[in-house]
Design a protein around this nucleic acid. Structure first.
Lengths: 188, 188
DNA sequence: AGCACTCTATACTGATTTGTATAGTTGTCA
DNA sequence: TGACAACTATACAAATCAGTATAGAGTGCT
């Protein structure tokens, strides 16, 4: 792994989340990363490519972490979908949490033809499909319906937490998720 | 009412939603509004003031519309909170809907010390309090808890709809809301 | 007619943006 | 020692940004 490329990615991720993507210039990024623009543009053709790389890495990190957590659980499929929001809470309440990248990116790039928006949209869909699979494994009848509801709770709670940290939105979403999951299980 | 000021506000609202706030320059705004920068800066001291005015007007419009809808209903408090997401769906699925301003603004201005972020945060809180009042009128025991859950559903569904229009998120949120409301009523 | 007011037209400042060109430095490996 | 690669330093181009200065056009009131 190239450490300088990783450093640029990590600094960009952090600055994009805390200051916004459009408000963060490449000059700021290289200054904080302790390098120069020439090096940045060696690894990323344009700022847009850098943004896409940041989005991809952020989503990968989250998905890997969640997969490990759920995979290391070893319980029944029912227990695993029940634990989903426990882990989301753990992720979101972590001190290093600054938001979910694709949620912020889709707001800053609202145009559906924009590549950044399209990637955000794809990642949102991927996470929903991930929940759908959890629901299917648990033999839930309307797995897609439940997954859509849970993904809305997820995005809404993250959104609320981005607006105001420590708002208790995650705890509330977790409780709502438990209610919805219990009912979906009963109906199956 | 000053028509030119209104025109600038309306054009700004539209451009901010469809292209993003930071990506929309004042030059673009005045060009689309068919006026000049001198006029814009006569009514709004800075671009920040313009953004704040757009946020305020958007929120006012939404709240007024919702108040009228719920007020003209005349049913029992129970029926009114049940109808909340019907109206939200009507608002969101309207062809002119381009998103909720304070949700996008908080993403573009993540810093909690920023005035735009603070106003967004306040509007999010105001809408939650509005739901709380609906729940209290319906004699729901944990009115604040239900209101928080419903506001998360609202923000999540709007977020999902901003990422992908026609995703069915609103319908799904409406269904989840009904479930959560029914349970909260039973527990009261 | 003359005044006041709103708005337009246009050019400008100064800062900041993304991206590049050019030259020099540093460390590594043979 | 010498070559190669990664990286730094700096200066620059061209566009765009927010905001201002200046001069004049149009309209209505008295």
């Amino acid at each position: 792994m190239n450490t300088l490329k990783q450093k640029i990615l990590q600094v960009s991720t952090d600055l994009f989340q805390t200051r916004g993507i459009n408000s963060t210039g490449v000059d700021t990024i290289v200054a904080v990363a302790g390098t120069t623009k020439m090096t940045l543009y060696k690894y990323f053709e344009t700022k847009e490519e850098l943004i896409l790389a940041v989005l991809q890495q952020s989503h990968q990190d989250f998905q890997n972490w969640m997969n490990d957590k759920l995979g290391g659980l070893g319980g029944s499929p029912n227990e695993r979908i029940q634990k989903l929001f426990e882990f989301i809470e753990e992720w979101v309440t972590s001190p290093s949490f600054t938001g979910i990248a694709f949620i912020k990116a889709s707001a800053e790039f609202p145009n559906e033809e924009n590549r950044i928006h399209q990637l955000s949209s794809q990642q949102s869909r991927e996470f929903r499909q991930f929940i759908t699979k959890l629901a299917q494994d648990a033999n839930i009848k309307d797995a897609e319906g439940l997954a859509l509801q849970l993904s809305i709770l997820f995005e809404g709670a993250v959104q609320a937490e981005q607006i105001k940290r420590g708002s208790g939105a995650i705890k509330s979403a977790k409780k709502a998720a438990k209610t919805l999951i219990d009912i979906a299980i009963k109906q199956s």
